[in-house]
Design a protein around this nucleic acid. Structure first.
Length: 120
DNA sequence: TTAGTGACCAACT
DNA sequence: AAGTTGGCCACTA
């Protein structure tokens, strides 16, 4: 463990934290990039959460399809193997999608900062 | 190495 | 009210 690694570990840790949260999103619920970022104490790092999802493609543990943007729009669908895969996965869990947008998003939204113990 | 981009969000004009 | 800009972190060229 060199001194140099501490920075790298920290950066890597952020991804891991994102994954840890996404993994806990219940089936049939959705969350948003910003909510995760805010839960991790980095409210302005929502983009990084999105990037983490991009990297999460390899990890089957991470249900990236349950993460949408703040208005419930499936902005990340183009990054799935099939453009409709994200939508189908969600509908398979009971989430209704209309025009690439989650219906009843407000009530389906799963906010980690409310559902999980505070991240400190 | 520097610079540019990205599955976003909030603030400012 | 609507459009633009900045900022965050990681990755690629």
């Amino acid at each position: 463990m060199a001194v140099k690694d501490s920075k790298a570990n920290k950066q890597k840790d952020f991804f891991q934290q994102v994954y840890a949260v996404v993994r806990q999103v219940p089936s049939g619920r959705v969350t948003s990039y910003g909510a995760i970022a805010r839960y991790l104490g980095a409210p302005q790092s929502a983009r990084v959460v999105g990037y983490a999802m991009n990297a999460a493609h390899n990890l089957e543990d991470v249900p990236a399809h349950r993460v949408v943007n703040r208005v419930g729009l499936l902005t990340g669908k183009h990054h799935f193997p099939g453009v409709h895969l994200m939508q189908q996965l969600l509908e398979n869990e009971g989430v209704t999608i209309k025009s690439d947008q989650v219906e009843h998003f407000a009530s389906l939204h799963w906010d980690p900062s409310e559902e999980l113990p505070p991240f400190i």
